[in-house]
Amino acid sequence: MMYAVTARRLAKDFKIPGASEPKRVLDNITFSLPMHDKIALVGPNGSGKTTLMKILATLYLPDEGDCSILGYDLVTEEAEVRKLISFVSPGLDFHRKLTLRETLEFFARAQKASPDPAFEFIEIMNLTHKLNDRIESFSEGQKALTRLAIGLMKDAPLVLLDEVTATLDVNRKEQVIEFLSTYLNGKTMIMVDHDSQVVDRLCERVMILNRGGTVARIMQAHDLIMELPYKYEIIMTPKKKFKKSEARRIWPDFGLFGGKVRFFAQKESEVRGIINRILSYGNFTKFEVSGASLHALSIRAAKPSDD
């Protein structure tokens, strides 16, 4: 079988100010990713998902182990690896004084690629009217789409997507999932995303990382989703302090955190019912619906000793 990524015993340490020993954030990461496979990295905060992505993107050097990407060694043949990968990171921000068009054209030239795929994506996302606007007028969601547009330019066989849908609203997220499900045909993809709907629709497999940066399990994405006790989350922000009894009247399966209430549902009909009750309750500033978060499940799936 041809593998797009083969990692063996990868490890990464970071110096922590004030600490005598460096902190190991990834340890003994071993996996193989077949060509055209799509896998999601999930795990609790501090499990090293983004660090692993940055190592695969050649941004960080691993301290131990070895890894080959599409037949090239990640460390000794990094220049070749970089021609074959496209990394979309939430850490990429833009110069506020440049327009969207100028930004896209700069990144196209820097990648020695055509900006056309990005312009097409921008058109699909109905952002063409923003092309001559400066980035300073963009919302976080629009910046996320700009990042993705830049990542599409290179038409790379290996795509690394780090939380690309995290700041998108429901409609945009749906548009992006639709687009990516076609775009990623014939490509290999590794993504970090907490939304089970995104992972379920875009990935075949899931790699669960423990806190401390070791691989807990690699499993089929669908099996993981089936393990979830709920499929949807409705997060509501009430105008005033919310009592448990009030929440229970809306829907019995809920959780309170911070100033917000999370309602959990299994079916779409339940979601509709919850939304209707929230609307009748009325005393809220906003609510949003998303797929169930993989975050909680990944914590459960990780080794108990690591938590």
Binding site: D93, F107, K112, I150
Partner: peptide, 14 residues
């Protein structure tokens, strides 16, 4: 570096 542009450019051989 703060904008993340540096990281992105490095992953593209700049």
């Amino acid at each position: 570096s703060q904008l993340g542009t540096m990281g992105f450019l490095i992953t593209n051989n700049v």
